[in-house]
Simulated assay, not measured.
Amino acid sequence: MAVTICRMVVIGITALYLFALAYFVIGTYGLFGQAPNPLAGVFLLPLGLPWSLLLTGLPETVRPWALVAAPLLNIAFFTVMCRRTAARVRAGKN
């Protein structure tokens, strides 16, 4: 049961990340007739917490790339934790 919930959380976070990334790209570059929007990355910020809070010290040219990469750290963390939980359940160590 815990493994299934964990997998659903990882899939949900990944789906939210892909939607936020698509919105960021569309809003930043004005694709599909959209006007360029300076707040296009606002949905990436909460997905990348706490790492996105550390971005203020980075140079302005690197900051958008770090904003895009921050949620990937959380996705990787949850994936590792889910695999460890699944291994513990298989071993019977709940």
Rank of each mutant, 00 (worst) to 15 (best):
Ala76Ile: 09
Leu58Gly: 06
Ala69Lys: 06
Leu45Ala: 15
Cys6Phe: 09
Ala87Lys: 14
Arg7Ile: 08
Ile11Trp: 11
Ala15Asp: 01
Asn74Phe: 04
Thr28Val: 09
Met1Ile: 13
Arg7Leu: 12
Leu39Val: 13
Gly41Pro: 03
Arg88Cys: 08
Ile11Met: 08
Arg90Tyr: 13
Phe43His: 10
Gly27Ala: 04
Leu31Asn: 02
Phe77Met: 06
Pro36Glu: 02
Ile11Val: 11
Leu67Tyr: 09
Gly92Asn: 05
Met8Asn: 11
Pro38Thr: 00
Met81Tyr: 10
Gly92Asp: 05
Ala20Glu: 01
Phe43Tyr: 15
Leu47Val: 04
Thr28Met: 07
Ile11Asn: 05
Pro36Asp: 00
Ala2Pro: 09
Cys6Tyr: 15
Leu53Trp: 15
Thr79Gln: 07
Gly92Pro: 03
Ile5Pro: 00
Gly57Glu: 04
Gly48Ile: 07
Pro38Gln: 00
Pro59Gln: 11
Ile13Leu: 09
Tyr17Met: 01
Leu73Glu: 04
Leu44Gln: 01
Val80Ile: 13
Arg63Asn: 09
Leu67Pro: 04
Pro71Glu: 15
Val89Leu: 11
Pro36Ala: 11
Leu73Asp: 07
Leu47Pro: 00
Arg84Met: 12
Met1Leu: 10
Thr79Met: 02
Gly12Ala: 02
Tyr17Leu: 06
Leu18His: 01
Thr28Arg: 14
Ala76Cys: 07
Val3Gly: 12
Pro38His: 01
Phe43Asp: 11
Val10His: 02
Leu18Gln: 03
Met8Glu: 03
Leu21Arg: 07
Lys93Ala: 11
